[in-house]
Design a protein around this nucleic acid. Structure first.
Length: 270
DNA sequence: AACGGAACCTGAAAGC
DNA sequence: TGCTTTCAGGTTCCGT
């Protein structure tokens, strides 16, 4: 579920709970989330290490440890952190010197946990991920450059982490609605005004979501019958909240559903 | 190289 | 009520 804002929120939790604390014990469940890791020594390697900071890039999260190591987290579809012993689907438990336990939980196990060298992990992010629109200014010029190389639908291109890091299915749909761009416009046909609107739209939807996450204390907005906080996502058949005339449509491409207003986000004639 | 589709998983919600 | 189907905000692999 997590996209950039949710991962940023997770980062803030780790800042609060972990940074400055020493790990006294680490418990792993040896599940798929550790894929590619040698598990035999993992717990021992974490024991006694102090957490000194966190870093997020796109949907990736690092917990940096004393001595140059770092734990790399990716939350996949269902990853989350919480406090407490024996949490459901706890994959990694970090027991701390203040008696607290921070758990990485992930029901579906699409997430990932990896112990590595902090500088190497950061270098990998730099190579594999596009700019992070929350950490860097990604203006119209940058977006045009990023999208010039592909004819894929702008919606699909926006979710490509190698081009731009952090947007997923929801925030791509939301940003396109704000920018009044049809999700199927070929990325290389987005014009400069469109790119300019998209640049501000991306920042706006991210900022709005982070405010919302802070206010709701980070509970996933779809937990427990809460209202849908999005403008188009999940609103198929409802009137567009901007033009109030057209109904929101749902379509599918790249295997994912997307939502848009056919009136506000008309395909340009060509 | 670039694309669409399937695969990887579980659990909540909708459908019957 | 209870069983079945559908769907989920991500990535990766595989065949074309």
């Amino acid at each position: 579920m997590p996209e950039l804002p949710e991962v940023e929120h997770a980062k803030r939790s780790l800042d609060l709970w972990l940074v400055g604390r020493k790990i006294t014990r680490a418990v792993i469940d040896r599940s798929r989330v550790f894929r590619g890791q040698k598990l035999s020594a993992l717990s021992k390697e974490l024991e006694g290490k102090k957490a000194i900071g966190t870093l997020r890039r796109g949907k990736h999260l690092l917990l940096e440890l004393e001595g140059g190591a770092a734990i790399h987290f990716h939350l996949g579809m269902s990853g989350r952190f919480s406090l407490g012993n024996k949490q459901p689907h706890a994959r990694l438990e970090l027991h701390l010197d203040n008696g607290q336990i921070v758990a990485f939980r992930d029901a579906r196990m699409f997430g990932r946990v990896e112990l590595g060298v902090a500088e190497e992990l950061k270098a990998r992010f730099a190579v594999e991920l596009g700019p992070d629109p929350w950490l860097e200014k990604v203006g119209a010029r940058e977006l045009l450059a990023i999208f010039a190389k592909t004819k894929r639908p702008i919606k699909v291109a926006l979710m490509d982490q190698a081009r731009l890091a952090g947007l997923g299915n929801i925030y791509a749909a939301e940003a396109l609605w704000v920018a009044r761009l049809h999700p199927e416009i070929p990325a290389n046909e987005v014009d400069r005004p469109g790119a300019a609107r998209l640049s501000t739209a991306i920042r706006r939807v991210l900022a709005a979501s982070m405010t919302d996450l802070a206010e709701t204390d980070g509970t996933y907005v779809q937990d427990a019958g809460s209202r849908n906080p999005f403008r188009v996502y999940g609103r198929e058949g409802e009137p567009c909240v901007r033009c109030k005339k057209a109904e929101i449509l749902k379509s599918e491409h790249g295997g994912r559903s997307t939502f848009y207003c056919p009136r506000c986000q008309a395909l340009p004639r060509r």
